[in-house]
């Protein structure tokens, strides 16, 4: 389960949801793995404002991963205009290929974006790091513990299980 998911999870017990202690859940005995995926810069920029940054930093610390910066990066810090110099043929080629995937056909109507997306933006190191952390770093095994009631939800083979035992329902 990718770490980004933790940003949208809390305890399954209703009374816990009212308590700030129930978010985020705390990984315990975590086994991490990297599940590689393609970096999607606009996805990353869009998801950034949805992150509970302080809480995410806490989770990262608990997992013993390198600290996140104190201040959440701006969406603008994730992409840089690909250098107009011709040294970058590879990136340019990649771009021409990706624009023809069906991903683009999926949304034929143009979305109103606060700012026009530059077509040839490349990910910065910040973007690469965030992608690695949020979308590729995954919990393979361990538990997720509620800070309010202490209930531990098991994670096995990358799947977190939130089914509650009968006496808690």
């Amino acid at each position: 389960m990718k770490l980004l998911t933790l940003n949208f999870l809390t305890c399954a017990l209703k009374p816990c949801k009212a308590s700030p202690l129930s978010f985020p859940l705390h990984p315990r005995d975590a086994e991490l793995e990297i599940v590689e995926s393609e970096l999607n810069l606009s996805f990353l920029r869009n998801i950034l404002p949805r992150l509970a940054w302080e809480e995410l930093r806490g989770v990262v610390r608990e997992l013993g991963l390198p600290d996140l910066p104190e201040i959440m990066p701006e969406a603008e810090a994730l992409g840089k205009a690909s250098s107009g110099k011709k040294t970058n043929e590879n990136a340019a080629n990649e771009n021409t290929i990706t624009t023809t995937t069906d991903e683009d056909e999926l949304s034929p109507k143009p979305e109103v974006q606060p700012e026009a997306e530059e077509p040839d933006l490349e990910p910065t190191q910040t973007a690469l790091d965030l992608h690695r952390l949020l979308l590729e770093t995954s919990l393979r095994a361990g538990s997720l513990v509620c800070g309010n009631c202490g209930h531990a939800y098991k994670v096995k083979e990358g799947v977190a299980n939130f089914l509650l035992p009968g006496h808690l329902v």
């Binding site: 999870l9 809390t10 299980n161």
Partner: peptide, 29 residues
């Protein structure tokens, strides 16, 4: 609810899948 179905659903990026009951969803309200 079904772990076996969740394992099949896991392949779709960039999304995430979990096992949960729809009357006990582990999401912030």
């Amino acid at each position: 609810r079904s772990t076996n179905l969740v394992k099949i659903a896991q392949q779709y990026q960039p999304h995430a899948t979990i096992v949960a009951d729809n009357l006990g969803l582990p999401h912030p309200t």
